[in-house]
Design a protein around this nucleic acid. Sequence first.
RNA 1: GUGGUUGUAGCUCAGCUGGUUAGAGCGCUUGAUUGUGGUUCAAGAGGUCGCCGGUUCGAAACCGGUCUUCCACCCCA
Length: 464
Amino acid sequence: MAQKPSIPKGTRDFTPQEVTKRNYVFNIIKKHFEIFGFQPIETPSFENSDTLIGKYGDEGDRLIFKILNSGDYLNKVDEHTYNAKDVSTMTPKISEKALRYDLTVPFARYVVMHQNEINFPFKRYQMQPVWRADRPQKGRFREFYQCDADVVGADSLLQEVEFIQLYDAVFAELGLEGVNIKLNNRKVLAGIAEVIGAEDLLIDFTVALDKLDKIGAEDVKKEMTAKGISTDSIAKLEPLFTLSGTNSEQLSVLKNMLSSSKEGSKGVEELEFIIETVKKLGTLSAKLSIDVTLARGLNYYTGSIIEVAAPENVDMGSIGGGGRYDNLTGIFGLNGVSGVGISFGLDRVYLVLEELGLFPETINQTLQVLCLNFGEKEAFAALTLTTSLRKFGIKADLYPSDAKIQKQFKYANNRNVPYVILIGGKELEDNIFVVKNMETGEQITYAMSNTEVFVQKFKREIGF
RNA sequence: GUGGUUGUAGCUCAGCUGGUUAGAGCGCUUGAUUGUGGUUCAAGAGGUCGCCGGUUCGAAACCGGUCUUCCACCCCA
């Protein structure tokens, strides 16, 4: 009995068309990573559990895919643990490895392990899949690609400036207009918490604030109250709920509000420096805006927090994010090394481009010339021609069997091939070949002895 | 992890309060067309109705479980 095949929830197969489009995005991101001077590394798909567990908070731990030990792993569990049936004590005994949850923590591990051979400041990029045991939704998968660029060993805020330029360069080349690069700073958030007297509740406070867009000021206040933030404290937040206007208008409100907090003032200064410097270096095609409600990744970000929102006309969360973590490698024993980085969510960028129809029309021209097959002798001549076209870098192929011409044409149509070449008995005899333009239907005859005439015309028309 | 939602031909979907042989469009195959695709016409192939169980004389339809899809939480790219 044949079993009905399936793939795990939240995973996907990719068709040739999809892979082609994914590679298009992938290559543009990669190109700009390299233009900005980043070097590639790769790390294993799975890490030792203790490298990952505890680095993303309780919620993160829940979403890490654990790998069961090999062998007779249950036998090695002591009776007490076994009978207790408690996940948190049992898991470490039967699982010592886990799938990569993001690229940042493995990178921190990499830096610590290779600290003696790394030439600091180290700018690395990494484009690999990560796995999360999350419940899938649109734009949310259990296996997806992240494309990260990070710098370690550089404290300067100029890094942040460059990352904003990098985001902008990628989205500009992808033709994606209307993205919003949102900027915040943990010091600002900490400053606010300090000013309202809720330092201890920083995380709860920011998580609630993060929802302002979504659930509105009233519900945010309710959530804050539920988390134990006093009514007095919440009242002091009032300026934030109505914060709007240009970046400089927002900065001056924040400056005022945080004047009594040293840390908060520092954060405002940093925001101001980044925004001013980006402005001086030239215009961005994306929007760059301050957003004090932005609070992702707070478990390790210590300074800048960056998040990229998809254009407003598409329903997609963030398509990228990043920030600065002053002491990320500290958790692996290397202190005093600052890191800052950004990430592109490849799968989400893909979905946005698809929804807006922004992939180039020619992207699925995976074959540029198809030679039809009229029989054994003709096919040999056609393969000879195909071989020389390939040497010119043209994506060329010969139909593998002498099927009905109608069928071969249909195949060419479906493959989106712009040119079909016919070498039948007549052409073989006269030492010529006929090129049919599939769009216009025009047919031109060329001499076999001079394929370059066709190649030149082809290159002019296709443009490469 | 909580609550909801979806699943019928390769694809998109109809299928009435349970009733005989489960349909359409597109796609596919063949022919009109033995060297010319997209258009047209004709014919044809293709279905464990997601899976398992239950109710019933009778289930694609009702009930339970399970898997999957999408959505809202949680959290996140």
